[in-house]
Amino acid sequence: MVTSARLALAALLGLAALPASAEEVPILRIYTYDSFASEWGPGPALKAGFEQTCVCVVEFTTSEDAISTLRKVQLEGTATRADMIVGLDTAVAGEARATGLFAPHGLELSGLDLPSPWTDPDFVPFDYGYFAYVYNKEKVPNPPVSFEALIALPATFKIVIQDPRSSTPGLGNVLWVQAAYGERAPEIWAGLKPHILTVTRGWSEAYGLFLDGEADMVLSYTTSPVYHAVAEDDHRFAAASFEEGHVAQIEVAGILKSSEKQTLAKEFLTYLTSAEGQKEIPTTNWMYPVVDLGADLPPEFAAQPKPEKLLEIDEQTITANSRAWIDAALDALK
C-alpha cells in the first residue's frame, strides 16, 4: 500500500515535471494579486482583449496580494518565469525599484489623466483611487470632516480599519495620517483608538463588518460608494471628505529585466493604458481609470466628489520611514 501510494505520488510529480513544450505561441507571464485575475477582476477581460491584438497567450500567476508577488520575484531573482508584475502600488514602488529587477518601460505617458503628472521611468500606472472613510448616509447624517472631528465624536462612534502590516489600505491609512499630521501622527492614532472597533487583516473583513452594521465607518476608497450605486443601485453610501486632504493609491505595472519578451510586455502595457484596456478597469477594480474614458465611464464615477486637496509623500521618504510609522501607529493603538 505504501509503495503504491509512493508510486502514484511520483507519477503525479512526474507529470508536473514534464518540460513545457516549446512555446509555439509566446506566453506573457504576469504575476499579479489574486483579485486582479479573478472572475470579478479586470484580468479575464484584459487577457481576452490583449490576445485579440497579439499572437500570444496571457497567463496570470496570482499571489494573495501585491506585495507577495514582489516577494516571489525577489526570491526567484533573475530565474523568475514572470515577464512582468501588475498590481504594485505607489506605496511599495520604491522598495520594488530598489531590487533592481525592473526594466524601464520606455513608454510616453504624459497624456495620462492622474492626480499629478506621471514621470516614473520604471512603473506604468493603470488605475488609482483615494483612501477615504465610507459611511451609510442614512445611519450617519453628519459624518466627521477630519480626523480631529472624528476623534471629537463620542466613543460609541466606531470605525474599522485594516492592519498596516497585512493590508494595502491599512498601510495607506498610516501614510495618510503621516502626510496630514507629520510628527503629530501618534497623537492622532491615540485619539482614534477608542473609536477603532477592530483592526482586520484585510480589506474584505473590514468592509464586511461595516456592511453588517458593526461599525459606522470603514477605511476604504472614495470609489467604494460607486460600486453600490452601479452594481446594486444602492445610493445610501458615501465617502467622508476630510479637510486635511486625501492620499491617492496609484496601482502600477512593471516589466522585469530578466524577461525575454520585453517588446510583448511593452505592448501589453500600451494596451493596459489605452482607452480599450482602461474601460475594463472601473467596473471591475472599482478605481478611476488613468485616461479620460468619456462616455465609457459610468456617470456614477463622475458624480462622486474627488478630494479637494491631495496629500503626497515622496517615494524615498516612504521607503525609508514606512516601517517606523507603522510601529508608531501600532504602539499608539496598543
Binding site: S38, W40, G41, G202, Y207, S224, T284
Partner: peptide
Amino acid sequence: ATLPLLMVRALGAYRT
C-alpha cells in the same frame, strides 16, 4: 480555484 478561494475573491470584489 476552489470554493473557499472563490469566496475570498468575491469578498475582495465587493460581492458579499
